Amino acid sequence: MSAVTINDVARQAGVSKKTVSRVINNEANVSVETRDKVMAVIQATGFKRNPLGMALAKNRSLFIALLADNPSPGYLQKLQKGVLQYCSESNMGLFLYDCSYRSPGLVAEIEGFIDNTLADGLILVPPLSDKKELLDMLNRRKVAYVRIGAPDAALGDSVGFDNQQAAYELTRYLLRLKHKDIGFVLGHPDQGSSQRCEAGFRQAYAEAGIEFPEKLLVQGYYTFQSGVDAAAVLLNKTPRPTAILASNDEMAVGVLYSAHSRGLKVPDDISVVGIDDIALSTKVWPNLTTMRQPITAIGYRAAYKLIRKLQGLPDEGPKNPEADLLTCELIVRDSAREPGRN
């Protein structure tokens, strides 16, 4: 049996195809009697409007896009899962677009992507979400977007994670374990999350009244290899730090690799901790102690905010922008312990 079409509904209801379309789209200028008659036919026939036809009629794609240049595949995988979950619930599709943050033609490239795909809105992953030239172009073209990152009214809607609180709590945990000389692997210098993590690290030392280990700060880039490289610097210091805190789990796994390659036992010889709680953190030995970032929930919330905006529906979530800065949770596993306790 062939599917019921809008023409079938119009014929059975004794009205024009345009009138049926007005009823479906809840437009004005349709009498109550006509609306009831058309709706009765729709219910009786089980008619469902073709979503592709709806999209073409409204010059929309019924797709949103997740734009990223993020070096952590574990992070992106969990974020994408949350975005896809809400897209599925709202019958929206998802484009995944990988671009180069440092490309001189980035803004023009993304503008071309919007024109070619008719993507209805964008979710921007750091560091793209902090790039002012890109945001200016999107605002000029009135393209809806939601940023993944810390709240900033000047930069538009966002959903993020309190990186400063995460680094602060994790540093306090290590200090409670009686570590004083803690190596710190910074995140990518182009990302605001890196500065916020460092601020949390410094805050914990200041509150503890312990001399800050300035010489134990080493630059990283949120990648596994940068964790390996940073650990090589820290593990060659004399005296060696008793613990290393990396600003994400990808780098923490790199630190683990570097420690193992030198014959060091974790956590007997050195403790290693990270931030994010990506799947990789439980696939290495020892399993990483980390601060759990609700990455999937952040992706879901970002998709919710964007799609509700596109649908002209109110955001029924938290009204306070700070409520879109999700909190963290300390996950204690096997990679950290008191120094010198064998």
Rank of each mutant, 00 (worst) to 15 (best):
Y221H: 15
D162E: 07
G220E: 03
I123N: 02
G156Q: 06
Y101W: 09
C99H: 10
K17S: 02
N116K: 15
V255C: 09
A199V: 03
L310P: 02
E316L: 11
D130Q: 14
D324I: 01
S271A: 14
Q80E: 13
G312I: 08
R140T: 12
G105F: 01
G220Q: 04
L217W: 02
G317N: 11
D8H: 04
L310G: 08
I182A: 07
V218Q: 01
G209K: 14
V83N: 01
Y145D: 04
D315C: 08
T5E: 12
D157M: 10
N248V: 02
I244A: 06
E329G: 10
L135Q: 00
P318H: 10
G93M: 06
A144R: 05
R337L: 04
A167Q: 03
E250W: 08
A68Y: 12
I24V: 14
V228K: 09
R11L: 07
D181K: 15
A154P: 01
Q225M: 13
E250I: 09
D152Q: 12
P73E: 02
G93D: 07
N29Y: 03
R196E: 15
A206R: 15
S281E: 09
A232E: 12
L56I: 15
D157Q: 12
I64W: 01
V284D: 08
Y75E: 05
A297F: 07
E207K: 12
N116T: 11
V253I: 15
V30N: 09
N320Q: 07
L235E: 11
L94D: 08
R11Y: 00
S100L: 14
Y168I: 00
A232M: 06
D157E: 12
L138S: 09
D136F: 09
K305D: 01
Y97V: 07
R49H: 02
R176E: 15
D136L: 14
V332R: 10
E211T: 13
V273P: 00
D130A: 13
S103D: 15
K305S: 07
V20T: 10
S194K: 03
S335E: 04
A208H: 13
G317M: 11
D324V: 01
G121W: 09
S72E: 12
E169Q: 14
P321C: 03
G299N: 06
R22T: 08
